Every structure is written in C-alpha cells, then in structure tokens.
Amino acid sequence: MKIDPAMKQYITEMILKTSFKMPSRLNLPPTALRFALEQLAKVFPQRKDVEIRALKIAGVHAEEIKPQPQTTQMIFHIHGGAFFVGSLKTHRAFLSEMAVRTQMQVLHIDYPLAPEHAYPEASDAVYDVYINLLNQGIQPKDIIISGDSCGANLALALVLRLKDEDTALIPSGLVLMSPFLDLTLTSESLRYNQKHDALLSVEALETGIEYYVPKNMDKSLTQLSPIFGDFKGLPPTLVQIGSKEILLDDAARFEEKAKQAHVHVTYKLYTGMWHNFQMFSPWFDEAKRSLADLAEFAHKLDRT
C-alpha cells in the first residue's frame, strides 16, 4: 500500500522527535547519544554499488567511498553532530548515496569529538587531513570541501584558514548542508523554528557548544563562528537548508554576506524539510532533489 506523502512526512517527523530530538534535550552522557544516533542511522539503506575502503590520514581514521575505479573529483566531507556526536557509521549510507549521485570519490573522516577533544582538536585534524591530501599530490582544484551541520562549520572555517594562509590552497568548491555557523546563537530561526525542526534542538546545540568551546573563549571568533569571517575570495559555494530548520537563518545570513563579498553562491531552500534532511533521500522527494542539486553543482565545478 502506498503511503500518502504528507502522512509519511508526518510519521517520520514524529519518530524523529521521539527517538532523537527529545533525548537530545536531556542531560544524557555523550556516549549514550552517540550510540542512539548510530542505531537510528541503521534505517538508512547503504548503496551496494560503491567500494568502501578504510584508511588513516594524518592520524585520523577515514573512509574512501568510490562509485567507480577512476574519478576526477574528490568530495572531502565533514560530518555533523553538534561537535559531540556523529561518526563514520552515522553518515556512511548517506555518503554512499552522495558518491553514486555525483559519481565522485567521497572521503569521510572520523575527527575527534568533544568533550573529550575540545577546540581546536577537530579543526586541526580537518586541516591536517586536507594538507596531507595536497602533500600526496592531489590538487586543490580536484577537491570539493563539504560538511553538514557542525561539519559545515568546520568546512567553512577550514576554507577561511586556507585562504588566510595561501589562496593557492583553496579547493574548487564548498558545500554547506544545514550549516551551523554561529556559536553565539543569535539567529532568529533558533526560536521561530524550534517547534518545527524534527531533528535538532537548541538544547543540543547549547550542549555541543559547552563541550566544544573552552571556557572563557569568545564564541564569536571566526575559528568558532565562521559566519563572522571575511568571505572575500571564497570558492563557489552551495548552501542547502530546509524551511523548518532552526538553523535556517545561519544559512540565509551566509548567503547574504557571501553575495556582498562577490562569492558565487548557490542557495537552495527545501520546503517542509528539517535538519539534515539530505540523509533521507531514499524516501523524500525534496531530499532526492538536494542530492541532484549537489551533483549538478559538483559537475559544473568539474568542467571549469
């Protein structure tokens, strides 16, 4: 029996609110929430038409996901999880879908999580992996840096750091999915979408910030809140956000500021979607469209 799309979305949102959003608002140990998220991620079907290889780069565990033996571009993806949850396991199925849709190699890393590893350990690990890739002979023009949620924070912070060091290090493109860019929590959508976002709670963000940011450190620093950085010279950037996300205004503010800095930015708003909706592409048309939009963006970069 075919389920009505509206009913399917309603049921999915109720399940997400009950199984993850509500527990994330409680003061549970990070290990418990990590386990819960990995269990939840098992519902996502993993593509069989990819090759997955475990490796270690710059001391960081990683996975290489390939849809075909030879690929021209690499997508270096940084997973989300409010800096304290998320892993290779939670994003493997989603990134296998990304690899198939783009027909590009996807590199996924298991960066150190807070509170065991506070700032700057995650950002330094991401930087070290990227520089290691360049040292292996991979050209910046052949890399797209991508991230979801706090992974988008780390991705943008990485590109800003590379830009400050040497513009020759900047990758060909940047993808920000459901980006969490402002750790000062000043975006209005944190309040007006609080009841609508099925997956992410303000409490989870506050917990992640408490774990990730060292005491007495200014949360508005660009390294922590890259929304406050200088965007001039950023590579072409794709931003994807759902209309129900509490982080909607983080994405909108990025688009506005990036355009003012003359960055080529493609901003995509997906109606009725919650945080990290892209991971639900096997079941929802808007999520499928987000991966098609990502593939289109990546292929344009590959042709330039």
Rank of each mutant, 00 (worst) to 15 (best):
Q68K: 15
S149N: 09
A6T: 14
L162W: 02
I11W: 06
A168H: 10
A251H: 08
A252V: 08
I52E: 06
M74H: 05
K300N: 15
E255D: 14
P226H: 10
A292G: 03
H262T: 07
D128R: 10
A198R: 00
P171L: 00
Q103V: 10
T18V: 14
P214H: 11
D49C: 01
L133S: 08
F76C: 02
I65L: 05
D164V: 11
P235N: 04
P69C: 05
Q70I: 12
V129H: 00
F297S: 05
V60M: 03
I145G: 02
F284A: 02
P226L: 13
T271E: 15
D142H: 10
D285W: 14
L185E: 15
D197L: 04
D148E: 13
T18P: 04
A122Y: 07
H299V: 11
G242F: 05
L107E: 01
L291H: 09
R191F: 06
K219Q: 11
G81S: 11
G233M: 02
R34I: 05
M14G: 12
S172M: 05
P171H: 01
L33S: 02
T167N: 11
R289F: 11
L16R: 01
Y119H: 15
P23W: 10
S146Q: 07
N193E: 08
S225V: 05
I170M: 03
L200E: 06
D302V: 14
